[in-house]
């Protein structure tokens, strides 16, 4: 039988290739072609020149990058970004795994379903609403629910300044992020747990393994690949807030002038410098710096995840 040429091969699958091509075009336009705009990080872009300004503006090399590195706010916003994301990674990341295990271990099916539904509903609440809820719960004026309650029962003498203390901002951000997103991300791990062979659990039970031992020796190894993939995604998004990518929304909506010292992060600084102050080239350079660091994180996480799984290469690439 005569072998088909490449063209014939493609033509015979033209319907599928058409759809694949649409996807390639979409990715190219959205993810690659638009990145040409990053060129203004190396130029003095003038918005008065419109799109042509990307070509017409004078080259300034790495001036905007070096300006950022000596910016008085550089250390503070880099610290805030890393600490906030690091705390989320430390506390918010394990929550969906624990929740998934907790839910799958529940004996009552109805209660399990109800709990799962309730746990992922906050994912659909916008950060604007969450910020308002946080304000209502934690403000230290007469309308603050938590402070009112603590004062009523005599647990405190003076209201606690949850919303005006920079140290409290990180805690509130991590708590609200975990509350909002744990249920949603738990879905992935519940699906991973569901794919584990039930025979393993039965065999372990016959051998006398306790529930904790089954979780430790079967469930966790069984979902370790999923945990690794989610970890890589989280590290790739570390500057934007890990899994949920909530850093900008949180800092913008829950941050205020009193806690700016803790809430100002790279994405909000990009917004201030770019949109509010009109320093578009400078803001683009800062954004590019953030992207470059994120890329290093994602490659690093991929490599180490692979190593932890006993592979020579990364999990994803």
């Amino acid at each position: 039988m005569k072998k088909k040429s490449l063209f014939q091969e493609i033509w015979s699958q033209k319907f599928f290739h058409f759809w694949a091509l649409l996807g390639v075009i979409f990715v190219f336009v959205i993810s690659y072609a638009s990145t040409f705009g990053l060129v203004i990080a190396f130029k003095n872009y003038n918005i008065a020149d419109g799109l042509a300004g990307m070509f017409a503006g004078p080259w300034v090399g790495f001036k905007h990058f070096s300006d950022f590195f000596i910016d008085a706010n550089f250390v503070r916003i880099l610290r805030n970004t890393l600490v906030l994301s690091g705390l989320k990674l430390l506390f918010s990341f394990p929550m969906p795994v624990l929740l998934a295990i907790f839910l799958t271990e529940m004996r009552f099916d109805r209660l399990r379903r109800f709990s799962q539904t309730v746990s992922y509903l906050p994912h659909f609440v916008s950060w604007v609403v969450v910020a308002s809820i946080v304000q209502v719960f934690f403000n230290s004026m007469s309308s603050g629910l938590i402070n009112s309650m603590l004062l009523q029962i005599g647990a405190i003498d003076n209201a606690i300044s949850f919303l005006t203390d920079p140290r409290a901002f990180w805690a509130l951000a991590v708590l609200s992020d975990a509350w909002k997103e744990s249920g949603w991300w738990a879905i992935i791990f519940i699906a991973a747990i569901a794919s584990i062979d039930p025979g393993l659990y039965e065999a372990a039970s016959i051998d006398g393994a306790s529930r904790m031992q089954r979780i430790w020796h079967i469930t966790l190894p069984g979902i370790s690949h999923s945990i690794g993939v989610v970890l890589i995604i989280s590290l790739g998004n570390i500057f934007t807030g890990g899994m949920s990518g909530s850093n900008f929304d949180q800092s913008f909506l829950m941050g205020n002038n009193m806690v700016l010292d803790a809430s100002e992060i790279i994405p909000t600084y990009v917004y201030k410098m770019g949109i509010l102050a009109g320093r578009y080239s400078y803001a683009t350079a800062i954004g590019m710096f953030q992207a470059a660091i994120s890329l290093i994180f994602i490659f690093g996480a991929n490599y180490f995840s692979g190593k932890l799984q006993g592979q020579d290469e990364g999990l994803l690439l």
Binding site: N46, N257, M258, D261, G278
Partner: peptide
């Protein structure tokens, strides 16, 4: 004027002062 060193300086100064304003007061 926009895109000048002094406009960049003013933007940074305004942002910094606003950041410090409540911190200094309290």
């Amino acid at each position: 004027n926009p895109n000048t060193d002094e406009s960049a300086a003013l933007a940074s100064l305004n942002n910094t002062v606003k950041t410090y304003y409540p911190r200094i007061i309290f």
